[in-house]
Simulated scan of single mutants.
Amino acid sequence: MMTKEKIAEALEEIATLLELKDENPFKIRAYQNASRSIEAFGASFSDLQNQETLEKIPGIGKAIAAKISELATTGGLKFLNELRAEFPSAILELFSIPGLGAKKIKALHEKLKISSIADLQAACESGRVAELPGFGETTQTKICNAIANRAKHAGSFQFGEIAAEAEQLRSDLAAHEDALQVSVAGSFRRRKEIVRDLDFIVASKSPDTITEFFCAHPFVEGLIARGPTKTSVRLKSGIQCDLRVVTNAEYPFALHYFTGSKEHNIVMRNRALNRGWTLNEYRLGPAPNLEGRGDSPESPVKDSKKAARGRSRAIASVKIPTIRDEPELY
């Protein structure tokens, strides 16, 4: 079944494949921005099938809106299938290796016919990667180590194995002078027996400072990816750790979103919609007044001053509950 999350993933995949084709950077960025816009989109799934509605979303133009509508309506996209046909199916795995971006992967594929991690490992072991311009012995060694770490740490971690490490890192982040609020989210916060990665949510007015501190922490073994609000690292224990820095106002919503399972978030988003609100990882607020929606239990009603005041009071009264060691609801 096609979902909002899958549509966002499809747009991100298009951007990645366009990078491999060395397409116009503005075109690539347009799909990346559209993916983020869809992730934050708070209206109902039926709106994703309506091209006119999609074109009203910031960051989404007519051409991309048509593709999103096709994905939502048919569950597939001809343009994406055509892009996929130009590359081996396993080539996207190479993006999981730290230090490998689109340009390097393109060079590996074109010069050495590398299309999977297995191919890359064999090329490194034979010394062929070091011979490529822009790579060298140092890069080849780093790639070999990254592949070895990936194999070593594939899978999951028991809660007890990483609990002390997670709590210490949370405590260190909370002690930073620029950190306003800090929590561990995800399956760790839900106290799941098996944890695949760690998610930290930090509220701060200085995201760059927090990110620098996080990347330089003694627990960190290597950087996987770094962006303006999200950074991913590999800890020395082997687990991947993601940091998201948000504003103080966004913090409760980010904590809720990144703590809940996908199913839980879908249920909560639908509950908000049925009450005329939009809920995502950044905010809870009035749902957009989209033309042709009408007033029904499944769609937001038109906003009013009275309703807005009621929502403001409701939002102000929201308190984040203590997470107990209980079975997951969704």
Results as ranks from 00 to 15, higher is better:
Ile7Phe: 12
Leu20Gly: 09
Pro25Glu: 13
Arg36Tyr: 07
Ser37Asn: 07
Ala40Glu: 15
Ala43Met: 08
Phe45Ser: 04
Leu48Glu: 14
Glu55Gln: 04
Pro58Val: 03
Ile60His: 11
Glu70Gly: 06
Asn81Pro: 00
Ser89Gln: 10
Leu100Lys: 05
Lys104Asn: 11
Ala107Arg: 05
Ala107Asp: 05
His109Met: 12
Ser115Lys: 13
Glu125Leu: 03
Gly127Val: 04
Arg128Tyr: 13
Glu131Tyr: 08
Leu132Asp: 07
Gly134Ser: 14
Lys142Phe: 06
Cys144Leu: 15
Asn145Val: 07
Asn145Thr: 11
Arg150Gln: 14
Ser156Ala: 11
Gly160Ser: 04
Ile162Lys: 01
Ala163Asn: 05
Ser171Cys: 04
Ala175Lys: 01
Glu177Asp: 04
Val195Trp: 00
Asp197Cys: 09
His217Pro: 08
His217Met: 12
Pro218Asp: 06
Gly222Val: 14
Gly222Lys: 14
Arg226Lys: 13
Arg226Asn: 14
Gly227Trp: 15
Lys230His: 06
Lys236Phe: 00
Gln240Tyr: 01
Arg244Gly: 03
Arg244Ser: 02
Arg244Asp: 04
Val245Phe: 11
Val246Cys: 08
Asn248Lys: 10
Glu250Ile: 10
Tyr251Asn: 08
Gly260Tyr: 06
Val267Leu: 06
Val267Lys: 04
Met268Tyr: 09
Ala272Pro: 00
Trp277Val: 05
Thr278Asp: 15
Leu279Asn: 01
Leu279Cys: 01
Tyr282Cys: 00
Gly285Trp: 04
Arg293Ser: 04
Gly294Asp: 15
Gly294Glu: 15
Pro300Asn: 10
Ala307Leu: 10
Ala308Thr: 02
Ile320Leu: 02
Ile320Pro: 03
Thr322Ser: 13
Tyr330Val: 08
